[in-house]
Design a binder for these strands. Sequence first.
DNA 1: CAATATCCGTACGTAAGCGTACAGACATAG
DNA 2: CTATGTCTGTACGCTTACGTACGGATATTG
Lengths: 223, 223
Amino acid sequence: MQIEQTSIGNGLLAGLSPEDYALFAPHLVRVDLDRRALMSAPDQSIKYCWFPEAGIASMVATSLDGQETEAGIVGREGMIDVATILGSSRTPLRSFIQIPGKCLRVPSSVMMTAYEASDTVRSTFNRFAFELFAQIAQTALANASYSVEQRLARWLLMCADRLSDNEIALTHEFLSLMLNVRRAGVTLAIQSLQSSGYVESRRGSVRIMDRRGLENFAKDAYT
Amino acid sequence: MQIEQTSIGNGLLAGLSPEDYALFAPHLVRVDLDRRALMSAPDQSIKYCWFPEAGIASMVATSLDGQETEAGIVGREGMIDVATILGSSRTPLRSFIQIPGKCLRVPSSVMMTAYEASDTVRSTFNRFAFELFAQIAQTALANASYSVEQRLARWLLMCADRLSDNEIALTHEFLSLMLNVRRAGVTLAIQSLQSSGYVESRRGSVRIMDRRGLENFAKDAYT
DNA sequence: CAATATCCGTACGTAAGCGTACAGACATAG
DNA sequence: CTATGTCTGTACGCTTACGTACGGATATTG
């Protein structure tokens, strides 16, 4: 039984014309992924493309000596992994589930075929690829220019956007991996944001209390 | 008089099939650009696509408060600006000439048409777009994880690759803009690389003397 | 050749963030 | 309800890099 387009929670797929959607429908599978579930990795060829319907996936750049930093995040507005549409069966980035939620997946061969077959599929996905491109460039800027607190603020805002929720369920430890800073550094940064009234923090979660203020604080780190 | 494909110094255009090249040929113009010449900018729509035949173009991410960091560099292996092929007439990045050299340009409408018209054009340019994507993600990682010296080393290596030359004619001032560090910080970093014998520096230029050693020092910052 | 502009070396105090460590708070399973 | 594991707050010394400033060196122009 195929998944009806009206039931799709992912923006890219939901926005396709019925004809374009039909290219995907027979191959779509809805799956529930746990935190940290791997979607694609540098050392393996890409089997599936993933379309989050909820939650957030994270793309991290890695180096052989073990450094890792988040390059970008993708929610239900997007997909993993754009390598497929840009004609590469491999990616230098590791993508995994950061905040669990249902995802749709298709074999990457299906994605490639649909991309080749339809102008409108192409334009939809190219546009997303470019948004991601811009997001990652912005991350490069943020990493070079802004304080830990501002980068954290940016990150929280981007997450909240994609979750449509002000409560972000992640530990300091995890945040420190994303931002490539000390775990203790995250604790201090959160305290600082908290003392300004922008967020509140419980064990294992951060809640945005004053979004406007937080945006203002993040300045141009958050676009 | 059209430019013959055999005389083309840009990798993307030179690598096209004659049929594909014919889509561009009538519209190609060869121009000489000075240092700092603007190729595309955030506040204007993209008129031309540019194909360096020598020299280097730089793409910098900017924010409204005046921060700037280089996101990626493009030499004769590539083009400015991938926004065009990915279906956007605007870009968040500013691209300009860093090291002067001849460039070919075509109106972006021609680029778009060729991209739509030919599978093979598409695949060639998509592949480049993905390389750039990976390069920028790597920059985000480098900015978050590596020291000024390592980032400088990475940057020099990437430049030398694209110039096929170990002499890189740029001032410390300029390098400091690229890496988003102090000008004096660049001076110190260069001295450090120099004292290890990796580079030599004259006024307005840096020369790589021990490429192997420099790569080794940059570690995984340089891929 | 002189005047001017640009570029580079150096210095000093300061700030941001790191590495590491430890203890208390909280959650969950037995 | 107790034991165990996880998460968070805090501390201290240290490193890296910043902001700023100034003088000397090197090019360029008249």
